[in-house]
Design a protein around this nucleic acid. Sequence first.
RNA 1: ACCGCUGUAGCUCAGCGGAUAGAGCACCCCUUUGACUCAGGGGUAGGUCGCGGGUUCAAAUCCCGCCAGCGGUACCA
Length: 865
Amino acid sequence: MSGKNKKELAATFTPAEIEAPLYKKWQDAGYFKADAKSKKAPFTIVIPPPNVTGSLHIGHALDHTIQDLLIRMKRMKGFEALWLPGMDHAGIATQNVVEKQLASEGKSRHDLGRDAFIEKVWQWKAESGGVILDQMKRLGDSVDWDRQAFTMDANLSKAVLTIFKKLYDKELIYRAERIINWCPRCLTALSDIEVEHKEDVGEFVSIKYGDDDLNITIATTRAETMLGDGAVAVNPNDDRYKHLVGKKVMLPLVDRMIPIIADELVDPDFGTGAVKVTAAHDPNDFQMAMRHGVEIVVIMNEHGVMAGTGTKFDGMDRFDARKAVVDELKKQGRVVAEKKPYLHAVGHCQRCETTVEPRLSKQWFVKVAPLAKAASDAVRDGRVKIEPQEMAPRYFEWVDNMHDWCISRQLWWGHRIPVFYGPNDEVVVCGPDEKPPAGYTQDPDVLDTWFSSALWPFSTLGWPEQSDDLKKFYPTSVLVTGYDILFFWVARMMMMGLFAMDGKQPFDVIALHGLVRDQFGKKMSKSRGNTVDPIEFMDKYGSDALRFTLARGANPGTDQALAEDWVGGSRNFATKLWNATRFAMINGASVSGAMPKRSELNAIDSWILTRLDQTITEADDLFEKFEFAKACELIYHFTWDDLCDWYLELSKSTFTAGGANAAKSQRVLGEVLDKLLRLMHPVMPFITEELWCSLTDGQSLMVADWPKSDPSSQDVKSIEQVTKMQEIVTEIRRFRNDQGIKSTAKIAAKFTGLENVGLADYEGALRSIVKCDLTDGNFTAKTQVGEVVIEFDLTGAIDLVAERARLSKDLQIAQKDRDTAKVKLDNQGFMAKAPAEVVTEIKTRLAQTTADIDLLTALLEKLPK
RNA sequence: ACCGCUGUAGCUCAGCGGAUAGAGCACCCCUUUGACUCAGGGGUAGGUCGCGGGUUCAAAUCCCGCCAGCGGUACCA
């Protein structure tokens, strides 16, 4: 009765053979496309834009598995589902790649000039950028490729100009001279989040300033900066130094008189309690300098090389100069104390690891306070939900303490700052389609990449135009990302989204997942050499296996460990599913025709339908709550244990017998697989598609309906019956095992009392699953499960020692359980205060264990000596 | 230093007031080539729930302290 187009399933499942063709099939059919004109309710996810220079790593694989899972599920649920892909232009990273290329030809970007260089970058992007996009297809990502976006696209660039001007007009963007994080290698300013603080080994030297008449000892780890000191600061309440405040002291090596000032910022308990103030090279010193009018002396150039000090140290690298300065001071006997090694946190460039140099320079900043407050409030008042909620404090911690955001980058690749300067330093900001007055020159810098990434949830949908997409799909439904980058762009997207879209949040939910770690829970890193390649895993085990492994490990907001073995286990699971379906089809599983009435079904069929229904209800609920690990666990358990180990085994005799009973079970089995495959599709899209199409002759699971549960069909009695069957089977297996009977050996057995537990009709099924087919014999041994007695013909082969040991052990356990129950019931406090259900439960347990004890005692006594 | 998170079976993790603490993988024993052999089936074994106090009839679960690990933040020059 198989349909004409039904494919025979191959004997083994080979992921590589089905994955690419199925992806193509989906793409060709247009299933990934979303329609802005649709009447369906929207469900939107914009991809957290990966880097154009990047390739797929295991963290993306997890991130994308979750997004694809949600999108596929919502699509099946009848939403107009849009998953919008794209990339950001990664200013520094991309420029680095191309500059390296040029360097290998002995050229620098300056040899080419700005326009030619940018052209070169575009060329690089066309040839080798965006590798990740192709890799996403391997994962099965059901993204709408027609809407693919790039932060440097015309429309997204227009969005950047528009928002810049808007912010400037509202005085939320300003230009100022500040101490910023400067990378002397990348030659650009960095924002706070592009700086990584790491413990460095340094040296903490105490240096005596001044002479015999007037001196003060300061302590520093950056001796070279003393050449640019403008003052020495002490705490105003520090009695040791009070008398020196207002006096001037001689700065060694440069022979300059500098004032001693008093400022609260100085901690009297740290170091010597006296601090050198180098306003041009330290953010705190700069603050103090502003307060006290201290002279600002710049002593380094952009490369971190000493310059303009008028000393012999000019021309030396900052680190060489540090040593040289200390040596020189030592010679002069000014080094009073040295502490080394001295561990302290130092900022490093996230991209190139170079030690960041705080540097005084004029840059453009976003005034974040008002924007951050809006971003904070949106979460606080519940318009945006963070999942899991325990992560919210981290968000607040970050957003509420954000410093102003330096957005200038001294690069060429990126959105050029739309500011033009007139001959007398007039400033004009140009929005899209606006022209600066003649003779004005544009700011040479570009904007931080994240300035454009922050617009992603709406710029990709057409903003600033009021496009159909924007109307249909904004606000997006959920942003899926790792908690480690919650701050990187989530906070920025929130700020910009709320600002640009008149207070409408960029997403309703922020769903955070953890990091993928190695099998020992260690963070993966190239230097540790413990990274894994998702592509390699997909080659070896299939995409579905990788996806399932990741989804199964994805507890909300917590990290997960990943080992190759786990992926292998998921591959085995996929194989199990494949073979179960194949077996079902060989045995005539069918999806056509009406389902038999519940009343006509045997307990086993009714049970599996009940379990299926429970599984659908619970898994659906868990998926909706972003509890992917638990949902997968549930599905795994249902498939492997309930369906394969119990249902199929218990039903084999029915299928073999054939006839009307078999036909009913075949229909039931078809129904179970049909719904199960639908339920699993979002997690394992490839294998489920292949199996489902074979089983049902359907077009595609991608556009099939999500399985609905029907709680009214719950059959509690069938659960009791099958649970009883499982107990009997387990006991017989245990008995056979203890007696050393091969699991394939067919032995004789006699069942008594099945009718007492409503299993009179299931003796055949029971006999078949435990290979006790024979009914005649000399029954010399027996065991018992409640009211059911099973006797065996072991023709004197019974191992009395093993059996007695076993029974004694069970008896002991039962006695212990009975005792604990008794203690509870004798406890007056418990009887008085515990809820009635709990008391009843304990009473039942007492009765149960007492019965068990009687039974075991009797069996022990009857056991031949 | 501060904030946050974590500490449960050999490993990775669930459980987060109801008492017999679970799963996957690994181990051990038996078994299998008639859905499953890069497999499958069955059966065992394995845990002072980090440590110490407290609250409760009842604590892995709540509170306090401590220890250990991780992450983030930080102006300690």
